[in-house]
Design a protein around this nucleic acid. Structure first.
Lengths: 252, 252
DNA sequence: GGACGTATGTTCGTATAACGAACATAAGTT
DNA sequence: AACTTATGTTCGTTATACGAACATACGTCC
């Protein structure tokens, strides 16, 4: 066993793949389903499922179908509660939301996606349901573009080399050089407005959330519908509120 | 090795305890911290941390401090996205929130606690930050009491035998027979109003969310401040909206 | 600079934990 | 009844994971 491998516990990795085998179209599954999706033998999948059941992460009423239990949320919550700025960000985001009467969210990068880590929702803007834990591609969201804009050049080169940019609406910018130009602008102006590139009718503005060392650790945004708030008003009225909130969160 | 033990993968259990070792006061920890909190040897903790790092769940910039990564949220999100009624509940809860102009949440039982699985927050009511994944003791929340009220008698006997009911505010009901009486009333009337038992000034009303088989699978609530909504108005104006939403979610 | 305390990194012999093939059984469908 | 698809169980095997012990690093204190 090589040095690299002796530091890797494949039983843990396999066990976690069992949790990941569940999802929207796989709410409850048979043992054989899980084994297939997690690429395990049936016997191994069975042992993992029974272990997770003993630990309270999985249940099986009839012995045939398995489903995840709410205790799995505690694993994710361990991450949320370990974000140092999470509680204070929530408070200032509530102020933002109240001031501008729109939804306010915070997200961090997770690979090539953003993942929502905080949210104050006034009303639904998008058709998809957004909650803490939801993922969206970074290149097509205002928070994602802010986060991308503040990545190291080397990381960005790798990102652009490895990512396929598919159009989602008629307005989605997918050309790499155009995207790079946008990111440079975002970096320079300190905010990003995105207009109906992820979904028709949806417009949002985001700013970076820096830590005390000046590193961009998250982004916060306000999302609205194009019928409600013109782009110019987003910049003139919403941006100052968002920037003020970001500074307060950093300072807290 | 006995039969029971051969179905239990202790390496997975131990690996998960590493994730659980992180939290609000343990945002970043040394290897030795994690080993201590997870009750592992340093060598084992190190292998698990390096494995979780390889999988993207943990990071360590300086090789000394470890912290959780947003990818951990995906584990919790696997549970949320596997709740069959989650998306449709979110939509109707948004309607409730818009109609009554207060926050609306959904929760399920997780041991003796409730855990929030959906939330539409209009404004802050409580001092503590509530998000998906947040826990609260069931006995002292409206949703918790609804969920307790619909548990099997045997389970309830066990619950009352095993739980200590500490007062949190001056109004917290902690006497077991009084609590049992309240639960019986909640079951009978089909809703629960709770008044400042978890926190001064906080009042909420909750109803059960049944599945199609008539089993109580969650509870939804509206929370408000005592200064804003009298109890009688909660019952006369908010309850019908909440009950209608619950029926629609069940029927969807 | 040395002593001390607290941390991480590494090795490797060991044991047992986990493995999976193979078989038995169960349930549903045709 | 035959077939398909599923779970339950066993147990010989092995390689995975273990942890004690040692080396090294870093920070603090004197």
């Amino acid at each position: 066993m090589t040095k690299g491998d002796s530091e890797y516990v494949q039983t843990l990795a396999r066990g976690l793949s069992v949790i990941r085998a569940f999802g929207p179209n796989h709410q409850q599954q048979t043992l054989t389903d899980v084994a297939r999706r997690a690429n395990l033998t049936r016997a191994a999948a069975r042992r993992f499922l029974l272990t997770l059941k003993r630990l309270g992460y999985v249940k099986s009423d009839d012995g045939k179908y398995f489903s995840l239990q709410p205790q799995v949320l505690n694993l994710g919550y361990a991450y949320l509660s370990s974000i140092p700025w999470w509680d204070v960000a929530q408070r200032y985001m509530e102020e933002v939301s109240a001031a501008v009467e729109e939804s306010c969210s915070a997200a961090v990068l997770d690979g090539t996606d953003i993942v929502y880590v905080a949210r104050v929702a006034t009303r639904r803007i998008m058709t998809m349901t957004i909650a803490i834990g939801s993922h969206m591609p970074a290149y097509v969201t205002s928070m994602g573009r802010v986060l991308l804009a503040h990545q190291e050049d080397e990381w960005l080169d790798h990102y652009f080399a490895a990512t396929t940019f598919a159009p989602i609406t008629e307005k989605t910018v997918v050309e790499k050089s155009a995207l790079r130009k946008i990111l440079a602008e975002v970096k320079h102006q300190g905010y990003c407005v995105i207009d109906q590139e992820l979904e028709d009718g949806v417009r949002s503005i985001a700013v970076p959330l820096f830590d005390r060392a000046g590193k961009c650790q998250a982004a916060i945004n306000v999302g609205t519908h194009v019928a409600r708030v013109p782009k110019a008003k987003l910049i003139s009225d919403v941006l100052p509120v968002l920037q003020a909130a970001s500074r307060k969160i950093t300072a807290a």
